[in-house]
Amino acid sequence: MNSSKDQFLQLVRHRVKFPLFLLTKLPAAYFSGVRVTQIEEDKAVVTVPYKWFSQNPFKSTYFACLAMAAELSTGVLAMMHTYKSNPTISMLVIGLEAAYFKKATGITTFTCGQGLDINQTIEDALASGEGRTIKIKSTGKNEDGELVAEFFITWSFKAKKSLA
């Protein structure tokens, strides 16, 4: 792995820096309790608890909080693979599909194992000079390992033109 990815992994794993990033850039995720619990080059794991700030009137985790956790499990991988890239890469969510299977009444853990696919899409965008998209899966399970929700998030990546 290259040094910029190592640097990014250190930032995400830092006890203060990444929570501060969430607080300042994604405050809804921070206050809902969304947290990155594991990140590697190919995989990210993100949790969201059922608590007062993330609840809905049906005594389960609000669907939008589940979506934030699912999106972060894919987005943190995309951020890692674009961190300090030259040229810089723009990234944008352009699609979201979700299926819910069970009430989320405790900690829901979202896992995305497509980090290498994301990296390849970014490399293709850089090589071609054209935008590229990828549909990424994030699976949410409860503490008993039961499927709670499945998300498919479509990301777009494009190299920004330099002004030089």
Rank of each mutant, 00 (worst) to 15 (best):
residue 32 S to N: 01
residue 34 V to D: 00
residue 35 R to H: 01
residue 36 V to H: 01
residue 38 Q to R: 09
residue 39 I to H: 00
residue 39 I to T: 01
residue 41 E to Q: 12
residue 41 E to S: 09
residue 45 V to P: 03
residue 46 V to C: 04
residue 47 T to W: 09
residue 47 T to V: 15
residue 48 V to Y: 05
residue 48 V to T: 12
residue 48 V to M: 04
residue 49 P to R: 04
residue 51 K to W: 08
residue 52 W to H: 02
residue 52 W to C: 00
residue 52 W to A: 07
residue 53 F to T: 10
residue 54 S to P: 02
residue 55 Q to G: 05
residue 56 N to T: 03
residue 57 P to F: 04
residue 58 F to D: 09
residue 58 F to H: 07
residue 59 K to F: 14
residue 59 K to H: 14
residue 60 S to F: 06
residue 63 F to R: 05
residue 63 F to D: 10
residue 64 A to L: 12
residue 65 C to R: 02
residue 66 L to A: 06
residue 67 A to T: 12
residue 68 M to S: 09
residue 68 M to Y: 07
residue 71 E to A: 08
residue 71 E to I: 05
residue 72 L to Y: 03
residue 72 L to N: 01
residue 72 L to K: 00
residue 72 L to I: 08
residue 74 T to W: 05
residue 76 V to G: 00
residue 77 L to Q: 02
residue 77 L to T: 03
residue 78 A to G: 11
residue 80 M to L: 15
residue 81 H to A: 03
residue 82 T to S: 09
residue 82 T to N: 04
residue 84 K to Y: 11
residue 85 S to P: 05
residue 85 S to D: 12
residue 86 N to R: 13
residue 87 P to C: 12
residue 87 P to N: 12
residue 90 S to T: 15
residue 90 S to G: 15
residue 93 V to S: 10
residue 96 L to I: 14
residue 97 E to Y: 14
residue 98 A to I: 11
residue 98 A to L: 10
residue 99 A to I: 11
residue 99 A to V: 13
residue 102 K to A: 13
residue 103 K to Y: 10
residue 104 A to Q: 09
residue 105 T to Q: 15
residue 106 G to S: 15
residue 107 I to A: 11
residue 108 T to H: 12
residue 109 T to K: 13
residue 109 T to E: 10
residue 111 T to K: 13
residue 111 T to Q: 08
residue 112 C to Y: 04
residue 112 C to G: 02
residue 113 G to I: 06
residue 115 G to W: 01
residue 115 G to F: 00
residue 116 L to H: 14
residue 119 N to P: 09
residue 120 Q to F: 04
residue 121 T to H: 10
residue 123 E to W: 07
residue 124 D to G: 08
residue 125 A to T: 07
residue 126 L to G: 03
residue 126 L to N: 03
residue 126 L to Q: 06
residue 126 L to H: 05
residue 127 A to P: 06
residue 127 A to G: 07
residue 129 G to P: 07
residue 129 G to N: 01
residue 129 G to R: 02
residue 132 R to D: 02
residue 133 T to D: 14
residue 133 T to Y: 02
residue 134 I to Y: 06
residue 134 I to T: 07
residue 134 I to Q: 09
residue 135 K to M: 14
residue 136 I to G: 04
residue 141 K to R: 10
residue 142 N to V: 03
residue 142 N to S: 09
residue 144 D to S: 12
residue 144 D to Q: 13
